[in-house]
Design a binder for these strands. Structure first.
Lengths: 209, 209, 209, 209
DNA sequence: CATGAATGAGAGTTCATTCAT
DNA sequence: GATGAATGAACTCTCATTCAT
């Protein structure tokens, strides 16, 4: 029994190793430019070995894609402990951005890369991503109902907030912020988040004459 | 002399043809899936001919990249006729989003794709893109100085507004908005833009007191 | 001793299982398209296990090849109970065709496929197949000696009859009879056999005088 | 103009070279065991070059397949100069066998190999082969109508004669006649053909008591 | 006895690129 | 100026086979 479990564990470790390696390479070189050979070389196995753990290249991509959405969703859930919906919303922003900055490869795959979209559409597995959108939407709805948020079409509002957070992280991940010094980036992200949320809600009271 | 000029003109026309064709194909199939052969077939020349006008594939991409930034900058300039800086800022948002929606291939190349970045960095040609950033920054500065904009670090504010617009269009361009019906997308973009800018500025007036 | 025998028996059963499975797959997919892995999966063992019972893929094929000839020979023997040589010859034709139609995989392997021949030549094991040829030859000789068969070179006659039967079944096995409806094929085979034999012998009687 | 023609000619020569080489290799090693690389090596070009002349491997096979049927049909036509239908039929047998013996690679591809069948079925190009069958059928019909041939179902009769010829040549092509010395093979084929046709028609009169 | 894990060799195919003409 | 012809390098993926356990 112990032996079987060990074997299973080792198999999972190998899958993990392949997934992580693939992820790193995807981020470095872009989805299309990573080959099975590259992955194999990096982990010092033969290309054929990869196929013992994954059906094909798409299987790897798809697995990573799903993992990413599951991680993100789990993180979102942690905000549920916060009662105040507006505070919770703010936290969601932080969580989202943190996820992106700490797992840029996953984020890229989930929200930027072109490749996966087609496959995922076919597989009708957008549901996973949709869950996260719904979660955010629900939070905003609560805020509106509590009068803490400007009345507006909820879909538009949800899309807007998502876009904002996405804009920030995707510009950084895709390296379009060379005007800022590399080591300040993380700060800038946080401040930008604060700025926007602050502008939207807090300032309404404070700034007016 | 006349002959030389004619020749030069013809050369430019050919370059134009190649660039436009490449762009169309990039949009249809994605950067990685367009081959020199595809381009050549489309313009009914041989692949080898392409190399008479461009050093290599990257040269084409890089040229398009630069052209994109030039177009965008020119569009930005059209807002200069507007006196009121806040109104001008709003117009800049519209112009930016319009450019992206009407030239998604260019936008993708300029702000999303991975490929070009490395080349561009080496060539220290970020300047072109930087100009646009500066232009936006200047506008925001004016707004702040006129008291029309919440006081804040200008860089942060600039980055924030840019991020917001980028977020909107890049989610759409990279097809992450399947939760909205295809034919409503353009509306949603506009409304999202209104929503955010409205939230940031107008409400401040309406809600206070 | 009993234990050893049991072991030996089990070993033989396993070989049988592998051979039968291989044969079924060869029929379904064709010799070249069956992999050791396919066979292994079908019998729910690992590919490596196959190699405990057979040296390599060729060993499997070769074994089946030989078995086929043994089966055919045994079937031929059943005609020995028939006294009249001409009737016996006719029966041999039926038996041959039946064998082919009921075991097309074996037949293919024995008389059509390219693969085995080289191996078999080396192994000088044509003898097995030769036995069957000799048996037919002997039958024809008897017919001739009994004046029931046109005088001719016996080898030529034997080859001719064999060719005829082979032609019929091999055209069908290799799917060259698409001009006939699938469900009539078996009938056509029988009628063709009757036609030729009838033409050769019976008519001689009927038409003359 | 002359240049264009020359180029076209050279292109055709290259196609021919590839086709012939492929054919030789197919016969030697079997359809499945010939690779684009093999062909390329044999003609001392790079594998990629093959693809300049043929879409893919199937294109090569399919082209050869069609060529074979066209050749055969043309040969069949030469018998039309013969008035007497029975004599013409005999000639058709000779022609068929000659074609097979002189172009065993083609014959193999057309009537024995497994690979092509599927593709050809899809392409509904069996027609080419069907023409030849029809031609033979028509000849037999004429013989029957002239009372030169035993009355029987024409389809069965046609299939029978075809089977006979096919049986002879396919046993030889697939090397199942090792009981005969190599250098006598051609003789044996001819005699076998004579034997069968003789048995069927001439002997009817001569042999009877 | 059985196998999980691994691989070298090789399949078909595509592509950016070069170069003689 | 334009190109037909060619190719080296790379791609994804499969297979028979081995070997330590």
């Amino acid at each position: 029994m112990g032996i079987k479990e060990r074997k299973e564990l080792e198999k999972q470790e190998m899958r993990r190793l392949i997934l992580d390696t693939a992820m790193k390479l995807f981020l470095e070189k872009g989805l299309e430019n990573v080959t099975i050979r590259h992955i194999a070389e990096k982990i010092e196995y033969s290309p054929a070995t990869i196929y013992l753990y994954f059906k094909d290249k798409d299987d790897i991509i798809y697995t990573l894609h799903r993992e990413g959405f599951e991680q993100l969703y789990k993180l979102q859930q942690t905000t549920l402990s916060i009662r105040d919906p507006l505070e919770r919303l703010r936290k969601q922003g932080e969580v989202y951005v943190s996820f992106a900055m700490e797992n840029p490869e996953y984020y890229d795959l989930m929200f930027i890369m072109r490749g996966p979209v087609k496959k995922i559409k076919e597989m009708k597995e957008w549901d996973i991503g949709f869950r996260s959108f719904e979660f955010l939407r629900q939070n905003i709805k609560e805020c509106m109902e509590a009068g803490l948020f400007p009345e507006a079409n909820i879909d538009i509002a949800t899309f807007s907030l998502w876009s904002y957070a996405h804009g920030i992280v995707s510009l950084i991940i895709r390296d379009r912020c060379t005007m800022f010094p590399e080591d300040k980036i993380r700060n800038i992200v946080d401040e930008a988040l604060d700025f926007m949320l602050g502008t939207m809600f807090d300032n309404k009271v404070e700034i007016k004459s």
